[in-house]
């Protein structure tokens, strides 16, 4: 039985999904804070939010890079 592979798949799924969701959620939250009226440094918050979205996109691209055999060969 391939229990080890099952655990690997489950673990990889969890790690990948949580990474993407956490980064994106942080981005959404920071955007929300930056939009608040009484905010000391909205520009900093906003750029932080964009950084989060950027890292999230990078994580996805890295995943695709791992998967497409054209790159890994």
């Amino acid at each position: 039985m391939k229990w080890l592979e099952l655990v690997t798949v489950g673990g990889a799924t969890l790690v990948a999904a949580v990474t993407v969701v956490v980064l994106y959620s942080l981005g959404v939250r920071l955007t929300a804070i930056a939009g608040d009226a009484e905010q000391a440094s909205p520009r900093l918050k906003r750029s932080l939010a964009y950084a989060c979205f950027g890292f999230c996109g990078l994580a996805v691209l890295f995943g695709l890079y791992l998967i497409i055999p054209y790159f890994s060969s």
Binding site: K2, V9, I67
Partner: peptide, 21 residues
């Protein structure tokens, strides 16, 4: 968003780690 992320990671992980779901 959460559901789709989980779906995509599960499909991609499974089909490339040899336990097809």
């Amino acid at each position: 968003f959460a559901a789709e992320t989980s779906t995509a990671s599960a499909i991609l992980a499974s089909s490339h780690l040899g336990f097809a779901l």
